[in-house]
């Protein structure tokens, strides 16, 4: 029986010579651009460092027992009382900056990614519904978006966080609230253009359901700008979280994010202790720039008209 089954199986799957899936094509196109690859390399390194933080840092900055006030404001390269070398120096309460930056990156990246994904999902749904439904629904939704966009993001986030209290979940909530409107407006603009194209009329004439027309036909054609905004807004969310923490309403001192670290060093800047703010700032900058470099390339690659 196995003898008979074997040739059957061979005929059924003639092993196509490595069929090109959309992902392999995307990967190939993405790697053609050296700048984007650099961005990806830096970003991967940052993510890896953040994930591995507990294993590669000499100190857990969340654990106050491991922090010694006697080690405060050591300049880069000095040896701490614990016996390890603080290559990037220590901050005002004796936290090793290298350890602090890696732990801070974990929070910053998580906040950026979660708020980006949530805001994109909500904003896309609102934008698509507004564009497809039209009429009063569209007017109401887009006036809410206008209202949202007319207020400065920092101000709204500041008020929300001040009202809700400190904590990672509250920060993410505040960031989603200030960011969904960007997605909604961009997606609506794109969806309005797509909606009038003949393939949407064709889909309607083929009797497909509204949900299918919106999510299978219109949405994929609005995704390219969303992905670009996701990268820009994720970077922006990370910066905004740092801003809020810098202003003292974001994350508590005991959970140092990059913003808290920068804020801690701010008061020493003029006294020559540059490292406390500078190194977390460089980490923040590298993270945001690397995300943006990738976003640019992703936008180009995802444009099907550039495909040869």
């Amino acid at each position: 029986m196995t003898d008979a089954a074997l040739p059957e199986a061979k005929i059924a799957s003639p092993a196509p010579p490595r069929e090109e899936t959309p992902f392999t094509r995307f990967r190939k196109a993405f790697f053609e651009d050296r700048v984007a690859v650099t961005g990806l390399a830096i970003f991967s390194l940052i993510v890896a460092l953040a994930l591995l933080a507990p294993f590669i840092t000499p100190q857990n900055p969340y654990d106050l027992r491991s922090v010694d006030i006697m080690d405060s404001r050591l300049s880069p390269g000095q040896v701490t009382g614990e016996g390890f070398t603080a290559w990037l120096g220590t901050d005002g309460v004796g936290r090793d900056l290298y350890s602090g930056i890696l732990y801070g990156l974990r929070i910053s990246l998580m906040v950026g990614a979660l708020s980006g994904v949530l805001a994109a999902t909500i904003g896309m749904a609102v934008g698509l519904i507004a564009a497809y439904a039209g009429g009063r629904v569209e007017t109401v939704l887009m006036r809410i978006v206008d209202l949202q966009l007319s207020l400065p993001a920092v101000l709204i986030a500041l008020i929300l966080v001040a009202a809700l209290g400190k904590g990672v979940d509250k920060i993410i909530f505040a960031l989603v609230v200030v960011q969904w409107a960007y997605y909604a407006r961009t997606v609506r603009g794109n969806a309005l253009v797509e909606r009038r194209k003949e393939y949407v009329e064709a889909a309607q004439s083929l009797g497909l359901s509204h949900a299918r027309v919106v999510f299978r036909h219109i949405m994929p054609n609005c995704l390219a700008p969303v992905i670009v905004i996701v990268t820009v807004q994720t970077a922006h969310a990370i910066a905004l979280e740092a801003t809020l923490s810098f202003l003292g309403v974001g994350l508590p001192q005991t959970e140092p994010s990059l913003g808290v670290l920068i804020a801690n060093g701010f008061q020493y800047m003029l006294s020559g202790k540059y490292w406390i703010s500078t190194f977390p700032g460089i980490a923040l900058l590298l993270t945001i720039v690397s995300i943006n470099l990738m976003g640019d390339r992703i936008r180009d690659v995802l444009n099907p008209r550039l495909e040869k």
């Binding site: 194209k197 003949e198 393939y199 064709a202 004439s205 083929l206 036909h217 054609n221 008209r305």
Partner: peptide
Amino acid sequence: LAVQMIFQDPMSSLNPR
């Protein structure tokens, strides 16, 4: 379904994705 339309612009009448 019994009435179908063939459109003018063969590019924009096909979903590019």
